[in-house]
Computed example of a mutant assay.
Amino acid sequence: MSTHNNDAYKISEPTLGFVIIGRNEGDRLRRCIGSILEQRQSISPKIDAHKNDNTHDHDVDLPPVVYVDSGSTDGSVEYVKSVDCDVVRLDMTTRFTAARARNTGLAYLLEKHPNIEYIQFIDGDCAIQPGWLVKAISFLSVNPHVAITCGRRREVYPQRTIYNALCDMEWDTPIGDTKSCGGDFLARKDAIIAVGGFNPEMIAGEEPEMCFRLRKKNWKIWRIAEEMTSHDAAMTSFRQFWLRNKRAGFAYAARSALHATKQNPYCVREVVSICFWACVFPIVIASIYPFSPPIALFLILAYPAMAFRIFIRKIRRRNSFRRSLVYGVLTQIGKVPQFFGVTKFAMGQFSGRKTAIIEYK
């Protein structure tokens, strides 16, 4: 795998487009669009200068931006139009999924600009960090087997709530070859098209599911040591924490049901862990308690033991004592709503009914 340095940040004739999705993001969307417009202006001369071998005739069109709106009522559509970006209103008579919104934006972008090579996907509550685009495109240009590159996503206000801090720590993942990305990433168009884009039936976890299909076709997903985006989770209540974890459990179950095999038990470990800690183990403890309360009480200690194990892992990654402790505790508590997400998926499969998207804000 090629490495990159300051001299490597030269872009070899790329064409770039942006796909943003959102609904009622308000000022967060304005911050998102603003970060794109600022870097869009700075990146085009670099692209053109490289194309023209050090000439200064900057006649390349600015990278196009398309915003896919999912029924906003806060003036988002009008704002995006006012800054000369394209808007696609998603058909809300069909069940909404973020995957369908991203596919719609991708299809629109490629219809209008078929020569695009790279697409930056970004959620409307995020903003691109300065310098990310040049570094990410440079990395893909010298690593042809990489389909997607992503970097460090940071929470804007991790100090406001423990739930925001939890998000920030979740995104602090190892650098290098990885299994999946989140909602913000730079993708190679040919790779995305090769696997048919996002699965529109996935109501959550659509990015890891697509990454799984990319890896099956021998594409790589790579996280580089660069600041990518800032995110405003705006997660201020336990209810939001609960719903976010319920959605995560649903996504694990859906991906496992779709792709797990004996040779590749995709997401099976996660689903088993959720079911064990939130259902099976509590039943075992409750069954033992009438006959041997001390043994039952001893088994309960497995929960703080697991939280402590996670706490140690986060401390080793140079997180603060308080944040690491909160992360360990909330990770264990989160197994319960995740189990409800798993059961929600199972009930949907049994009844044959499609489940509506699970939103936490």
Rank of each mutant, 00 (worst) to 15 (best):
G124I: 01
H113I: 14
L16R: 15
A101L: 11
Y252P: 02
D59C: 06
G182N: 05
W242D: 08
T261N: 08
L109R: 07
K217E: 04
N264R: 13
I11S: 02
V77H: 11
I310R: 04
S35T: 13
I221H: 01
R223W: 08
W242N: 14
A286L: 07
H56P: 02
V87E: 00
L16V: 09
S72W: 04
H145T: 15
V80Q: 03
M347H: 04
E359Y: 10
G197L: 06
G196R: 06
I358N: 00
C32G: 10
R188Y: 05
T229K: 04
Q349L: 12
Y118A: 09
C267M: 15
K344Q: 10
I358Y: 00
G196S: 07
V271C: 08
I175K: 13
I224E: 12
T104D: 15
V65T: 14
A307M: 10
P158M: 09
V83M: 05
V326D: 09
F311S: 05
R95P: 15
A248N: 03
V66D: 01
A101G: 15
D53E: 14
R31L: 04
I333T: 05
I33A: 08
T236I: 06
A296K: 13
T93P: 14
A8P: 01
S351L: 08
T97M: 05
G124W: 04
F281R: 05
S180F: 09
M306F: 03
I283C: 06
A165V: 01
I310D: 11
K189L: 01
A260H: 00
E201Y: 09
K10C: 03
I192F: 00
V329K: 04
G75V: 04
